[in-house]
Design a binder for these strands. Sequence first.
DNA 1: CCGCGAAGGTTGCGGCAGCATTACGGGGGC
DNA 2: GCCCCCGTAATGCTGCCGCAACCTTCGCGG
Lengths: 223, 223
Amino acid sequence: MRLLLIEDERELANALSAALAKHGIVTDHTMHLDDAFELTRQNDYDAILLDRRLPDGEGLALIPKLRRSGIETPIIVLTARNEPLERVEGLDVGADDYLGKPFLVEELMARVRAVLRRPPNLAEPSVTAGRMVIDPLHLNVTIGPIPLDLPRRELLVLVTLAKRKDKTVLRSTLEAAVYNYEEEIQSNALDAHISRLRKRLLDAGAGVTIHNIRGVGYLLKEE
Amino acid sequence: MRLLLIEDERELANALSAALAKHGIVTDHTMHLDDAFELTRQNDYDAILLDRRLPDGEGLALIPKLRRSGIETPIIVLTARNEPLERVEGLDVGADDYLGKPFLVEELMARVRAVLRRPPNLAEPSVTAGRMVIDPLHLNVTIGPIPLDLPRRELLVLVTLAKRKDKTVLRSTLEAAVYNYEEEIQSNALDAHISRLRKRLLDAGAGVTIHNIRGVGYLLKEE
DNA sequence: CCGCGAAGGTTGCGGCAGCATTACGGGGGC
DNA sequence: GCCCCCGTAATGCTGCCGCAACCTTCGCGG
């Protein structure tokens, strides 16, 4: 196993390298973001440990750069900036985990192991349908540059259909996506949502149509 | 998106459900480990939020049980037991992340998003027959990129035949696949479905033929 | 090779289940 | 208070599907 450590405190870096070595993990170490980027081009790391505060800037900035260049290696951010909102920030730019300093090496190891258990991240997270770009993770829908504002239940219906575009989605699947098992619906609430969603998509010129498969479910098609 | 929340503090649970709902996430909630296990058998959750200290025992114990039963759903442990070594313990039994109480809902959301950044559904069992690709689970049939729209009963017949292509399917098996026990048929309804299905498959250029085995049943063959 | 009965194939018809649409009102958020 | 979401229900409509009538094919015995 091979990690890339991006960290400017030399003592900490050495201690970490040594500790990881005891677990049979090889560590490459750099203090600079552009070096780090180069290294990821040359080596296929199993994970990246990234400090936020670095001599040449904010470590987080590296993450989108790596992701854009097609590198999906898990990234764990190590930092003293450990306020909850800072952690949110880190995770949302694409980090896989976030660990506040100081930490135990044992915890770091456990988090590395946890991150490595996850399947490699190959999936394109956003879906296009017609003229829309749909991000199922953050529940965003945009048509070109302008966001499409949809009520929550209609949004859930749309995302569920879009994730399986050109394929039928069972009625029961849609119900499960929109309602939890405590909320029971006794009427045609889902149909009503579909109808209102259709109208909104039409008005917005979304470039998709929702078809019904009688007795089975629904299907979203591009025009 | 659908989460399972295993948590005994009702207030926290309600607050979380409400907060997650604002992000368009449907939440099922239970206080009991065995209920939780049952729920995972019945639903396909996107993630599981698990408390450690529960009325019926240590929440962590659920993790190996789920993993052994083949469930790979990401699990985030939520707990007041937030000592580093306890976190190691949690991660090492198979949790994907570990979040100490109290926490901001925003941070939980960010961690959920981080954990979900994984490939969507891996292998979906599908059958090919002629030029069709048939997904028996979601009941959809596509020829190349275009979906084939079939009425429900014909669809059920096709799926049943396709699952055993090149083998005879008993007439009684087909009837069982298309009708439940309450619906009796007194006529040649099944034959009629077969006939209409043949026509539709021909028009669509599906590349299969349905043969009759006199007195026994039917058989689907590729051309 | 022919005749005959039974199984299967095809097709039009009508009932009705399922869907689309829309108006209405309660309720929550700002 | 105002606005919008969303569940409900009434209304109209589409087309699935059971039915049955009629035709075709198959297998068998003579």
